[in-house]
Amino acid sequence: MKTKAFPYPAVKYDDAALEKLARRLRCDTLCMIHQASSGHPGGSLSSVEILSTLYYQYLRHDPANPERTDRDRFVLSKGHACPILYAILAEQGYFPEEELCHLRRVGGLLQGHPSLHIPGIDASTGSLGQGLSLANGVALAAKLDGSDLHTWCLLGDGELQEGQVWEAAMTSAHYKLDNVTAIVDRNGLQIDGKTEKVMALEPLAEKWLSFGFHVIECDGHSFSDLRRAYDEALATKGKPSCIIANTHKGHGVSFMTDQAGWHGKSPSVEQLQAAVTEICGDKKIESSCMKTVLGEVKGGGR
């Protein structure tokens, strides 16, 4: 039986379109976190290109049918970066963009960390270290069912300090889960500082390699390099792949870039305005979330 085509990935999202979209998603993310007065900007901004490449150019999914069983799955193991994921899901129509303005609020749809009851979210996460096991479980089920769906899992680099990640890594390799791709957002920072200072991870590529993964390193802010990595991961058979995406925490906003202090802090009005100005440059970027939040800011609403 021929399966129905998925609206995503969509060819119209070439690099120029993605580049513009990424700016908008960065703005949405910061507006949401400002509006919520709490949240995690640093690790959201480092994942913008990783996630937009995935959600617009790779993941087979259908916002009109979030529960389609033949869809690819995505597990945001570093659940605190959910603002960027929520921004993408809203843009693709999983839920009204209006919800972005109620992030982390009583009565709102969008919880502080991903929850399965939110349309488009494939796993409940936020307690670090649990996501790769979930991805493995989905991938094992897909193999049982003869489905060709692919599971993607995004992990933080600090998150790799959780033992469960390595327990899961053994499972991925043991069951030859070539339908699992782990992506590591290698921004070099966690809450208490540099990963190499808090609890060293290097040599990281060698670790994944020795755990039985096909390891690919890439520039996590370059669409073309991410595509090279994703293509290579999908083409690899007989073993799982791990993409180490080299990124900068807070990328796109100079005063947040590579600053551990911006891990879990909400920008003030002035900081939000400065960030948006820098992200947009000479481009005209618009979204309903930006309109609401920045409109309120201008009107002195908050």
Binding site: S38, G39, G112, G126
Partner: peptide, 8 residues
């Protein structure tokens, strides 16, 4: 704990 939500 507040805005971090149920997971926390």
């Amino acid at each position: 704990v507040g805005p971090d939500g149920p997971t926390h």
